[in-house]
Amino acid sequence: MTTAKNAARAATESPAFRTIARIGYVVLGIVHIVIGFIAISVAMGGGGEADQGGAMQTIRDTPIGIFLLWAIAIGLAALAVWQVAQAFLERNPDTKKKWGYRVKYVGTAVVYLAIAGTALVYALGGSSDSSQSSQTFSAQLMSTPGGVFLLVLVGLIIFAIGAAFVVRGITRGFEKHLDLPAGVARKGIVTFGVVGYVAKGVAVAVAGALFVIAAVTHDPQTAGGLDAALHTLAGLPFGPVILWVVAAGLIIYGVFCFARARYARM
């Protein structure tokens, strides 16, 4: 077991692997920037799916789309592996036994793998509809014993994840994972991080709330992913303005991911 852990640690700490993992942050930034611009289109009354699927479709339609999709899939897969390694190969004895620490990293890895999987589907010529998948999942779950309760639980978990993003942004909790330069550059990166984390948190929290509403109203059509959440924001009083702000925040989060690729502690 020790030999296997040492081998895994050596692999994930190699310069080549870390470079690929850092590329994962870059492509993650690209995905968020594309989603942000699609969300702006929605705010202006245009079409498009402001989620991972819509972003992948938009990327695939570019001249270098297939190359970017493969880069997204490989980079985020490597980043997911690194996250798992952080969870289970951490040398620090103070964090090694904290399951909350492990759950956070593993949960993040699952999200990265999901986005990588979506990129792979589009790179191979396929497509996906996250809103339809969410609605199908909600309908199937509600048809099972205790399904309504489970769907509420799913919604609350997603809402909590969104709230955690907001808190991490407001408290600047992300700074401890970065080796930032001093001066104006640091202030700029931190500001982008705060705005980006809060904006993403709001969008994720709304998506979680939609699952809860779907369960309470017994209407699976209400449930949806990020695209449904952003469309919901657009339908609120002053919705287009709110969506503009959130969309700009998602773009800023994408730019922050570029800085994260450079300064993340790995």
Results as ranks from 00 to 15, higher is better:
31 V>C: 02
109 A>M: 03
14 S>R: 05
137 F>G: 07
18 R>K: 13
148 V>D: 12
85 A>S: 09
208 G>I: 00
206 V>L: 08
161 I>A: 13
262 R>T: 14
66 I>F: 12
176 K>N: 07
136 T>I: 09
19 T>N: 12
108 T>V: 14
44 M>I: 10
150 L>Q: 08
44 M>H: 14
119 A>Y: 00
108 T>Q: 15
204 V>S: 04
94 D>H: 10
127 S>Y: 06
68 L>R: 10
212 V>P: 02
123 A>C: 01
4 A>H: 09
46 G>N: 05
151 L>E: 00
138 S>V: 00
150 L>M: 10
94 D>N: 12
68 L>Y: 10
175 E>W: 03
88 F>V: 07
51 D>W: 10
32 H>S: 06
4 A>S: 12
257 C>A: 15
111 V>A: 06
143 S>R: 01
180 L>M: 04
238 F>D: 10
216 V>Q: 09
67 F>Q: 14
5 K>V: 03
124 L>M: 14
186 R>G: 04
220 P>K: 01
43 A>F: 06
220 P>L: 01
257 C>F: 14
203 A>F: 05
192 F>T: 13
178 L>R: 08
139 A>E: 11
56 M>H: 11
6 N>E: 13
245 V>E: 03
160 A>G: 10
211 F>I: 03
16 A>N: 09
180 L>R: 02
107 G>I: 00
245 V>C: 07
28 L>Y: 13
140 Q>F: 02
194 V>D: 08
134 S>E: 05
181 P>V: 03
248 A>V: 11
143 S>C: 02
14 S>T: 04
103 V>Y: 06
229 A>Y: 06
24 G>M: 00
235 G>F: 06
108 T>G: 09
202 V>M: 05
171 T>V: 11
129 D>I: 01
52 Q>V: 15
101 Y>L: 02
6 N>K: 11
198 V>A: 08
128 S>Y: 05
94 D>P: 00
258 F>S: 11
258 F>V: 15
89 L>G: 02
92 N>M: 04
25 Y>P: 03
164 A>I: 08
145 P>K: 02
197 Y>M: 06
110 V>T: 01
60 R>G: 15
79 L>I: 05
118 T>S: 13
193 G>D: 07
183 G>L: 02
71 A>N: 09
164 A>L: 11
95 T>V: 13
129 D>Q: 04
131 S>C: 07
211 F>Q: 05
106 V>R: 01
251 I>T: 13
59 I>H: 12
222 T>Y: 07
125 G>K: 00
221 Q>I: 09
172 R>T: 12
261 A>M: 10
227 D>E: 04
195 V>I: 15
176 K>D: 10
220 P>V: 01
58 T>S: 15
136 T>S: 14
185 A>K: 13
15 P>D: 01
93 P>F: 00
232 T>C: 07
1 M>H: 11
176 K>S: 12
30 I>N: 08
47 G>S: 14
201 G>M: 03
233 L>F: 11
56 M>W: 09
226 L>Y: 08
223 A>L: 04
241 V>P: 00
136 T>D: 12
140 Q>H: 08
158 I>N: 04
188 G>P: 07
